[in-house]
Design a binder for these strands. Structure first.
Lengths: 340, 340
DNA sequence: TTGTAAGCGTTATCAA
DNA sequence: TTGATAACGCTTACAA
């Protein structure tokens, strides 16, 4: 038929058209597209054939309006400086899409924007809002999110401890314990911890775990410095400043960083500002295992989170109709490389 | 009232509720939320006050269903290895959101997935699908997208030349010309060009511009190598392999890379595989100005695209109701750093 | 300026 | 297994 071209252009093909073409009712068309619908095999085939022919696909917006599921989630992200974000975005969008879920990406411009971001998401009827790897103050954000109009609020890759949210993350204590044991086993003597935002308890776990373990093992308190954002540039400056004037014996022999974003900046500072070598003069460890960590330039010893498994758990949580609890027990693995 | 808590939980507040509370009709409520609606100041205030009180926000899904605009766009992305993607995602989501547009992030898993990705987007009634910085074969993708059910198809940060798409990008010829002039002015003698996917014409412009200019200026053809994806690791291996066995005089004195993703990998190879220095032994240039390019470790001479301006143009294109043409004349600026 | 009718394309629910 | 009714919450006419 010469309608071929026409069909594609002439506005939307709806279930009604397919129904007419297949000689069934509109509702039967719909059933054909639902997995566990009660429909005869014959009807379904007839419908799917007609749909194929007419190039019909269900309109998910209309579906969302009529049902109470949109199969849409919002990813709220507050920081694009950390390369690990790209990794998480890739995994999350991949796994979500493989499970029939689309993803709204919402850029939280600043802490005050958190509330607007969530409202935005709610206006699209998302099934869940996922806060990915917050660096903004958890408390501020979760409070702003207090009057929530979103069904589920999930904190991904960070523990939250906040009621009404579901956390999905690695067991930070176990992870940092493993890393610290490794560091202790290597015989380092003068550690310094480079921490990120000091704002909330969730951010402090890695630092505290390290400091506590070190104290117990060695009998003295490790030095700690921190930066207000997970930004390699800030880490560079903080390290350059903190270590700049020190004489050799006062320098740490290892810089334990809360994550890779900080570790990469720190390593640059050690080499290019202080003119020292790593690991020979100062060793470095990170957390996350961003792609660059594996590059021969950094060869960063770090801890890899099981992001895919976490994303799959997220899908499970999404599909669970009832309330869910936290899943903060994921275990990753230490990636031993050249930097420590 | 003790309803306070209740209101937030008891299901959605609709325009009807606000209408009742404000003592107007549902349609008046709607007008109050539209910028140029014909409504008296008084009515609007009354409505907005009631809306505020009831914590009402319009449902954008329902709005999209009823109108033919969704204020939703899909960002189709085919590659998360290139750190420039994170920059583009940040700018695009920021600018779009500032203009009332939400963003669907769709991960194209492979070339064959392009069609499904677009259908996915269309099922959400997006106003436009934006292909950001394709590395997959343009032709394959644009063909897959042929039977398109999306109103606008925009190719961002890459020229497409394909009819039925709108490109928004820098003028690659002008950009590469500027970069090449700089390189020529510095007196390099033995260039090598590191190209990305050789698949389509859009990918070839930078290479061809460089090779042509070099030939005209110096009278001989520059060497070219290429990798199938914009992946730093592949660049590393390609450079290590191409230059590995060469004696000093056979080595290039500058490696001109199609973009920063390749340049970073190339630089790592020069230093850590070949054991050479940059720029002393081999200089390097990139394209994009990713954040790492500015780090003292790389200090990469590169070309910064005006991503924000391009994003703003994108918004314009989105808002233009009619068909639009390409906007491929953006000019960025060369960022001269230590690497060349 | 305001109100009304008629959808938008689906789904929940019940009846056949 | 199938068909029909009534939403879902909004917008675009157009009429008052």
């Amino acid at each position: 038929m010469s309608d071929d071209r026409h069909d594609a252009v002439v506005g939307v093909v709806t279930a009604d058209h397919v129904a007419a073409a297949a000689g069934v009712s509109r509702w039967t068309v719909n059933r054909a597209f639902k997995k566990d619908a009660s429909i005869s095999k014959k009807s379904r085939e007839k419908v799917l054939a007609a749909a194929e022919r007419l190039d019909y696909v269900p309109d998910l917006m209309a579906a969302a309006l009529a049902s109470d599921r949109s199969n849409l989630v919002a990813l709220l992200i507050d920081d694009f400086r950390n390369p690990h974000k790209l990794v998480m975005l890739e995994r999350l969008t991949r796994v979500l899409r493989q499970n029939g879920c689309d993803t709204l990406l919402v850029n939280m411009l600043d802490e005050d924007d958190a509330h607007r971001a969530l409202v935005s998401a709610s206006q699209r009827r998302v099934d869940a809002a996922i806060l990915i790897g917050l660096q903004f103050d958890d408390e501020v954000i979760l409070t702003a999110l207090g009057a929530r109009r979103v069904k589920k609020l999930i904190v991904f890759a960070r523990m939250s401890g906040h009621p009404n949210t579901i956390s999905i993350s690695v067991d930070d204590v176990a992870a940092m314990t493993e890393l610290t044991e490794y560091i202790l086993s290597k015989g380092y003597r003068r550690p310094m911890f480079l921490a990120g935002p000091n704002t909330q308890s969730a951010h402090l776990i890695r630092k505290e775990t390290f400091v506590d373990m070190w104290q117990r093992a060695r009998g003295y308190v490790a030095e700690v410095i921190s930066v207000p954002l997970y930004d390699p540039d800030l880490a560079f400056r903080a390290v350059a400043e903190a270590l700049g004037g020190r004489s050799r014996p006062d320098l740490p022999d290892i810089l334990v960083c809360e994550n890779d974003a900080l570790a990469l900046g720190a390593m640059d500072a050690i080499r290019h500002d202080l003119g020292l070598r790593t690991p020979d003069d100062i060793a470095v460890t990170g957390f996350d295992d961003v792609p660059q960590a594996a590059s021969p330039n950094y060869s960063l010893t770090t801890y890899r989170q099981p992001v895919t498994a976490m994303a799959e758990k997220l899908v499970e949580v999404l599909q669970a109709r009832g309330d869910d609890t936290d899943h903060t027990g994921f275990r990753g693995k230490i990636m031993v490389r050249g930097s420590a």
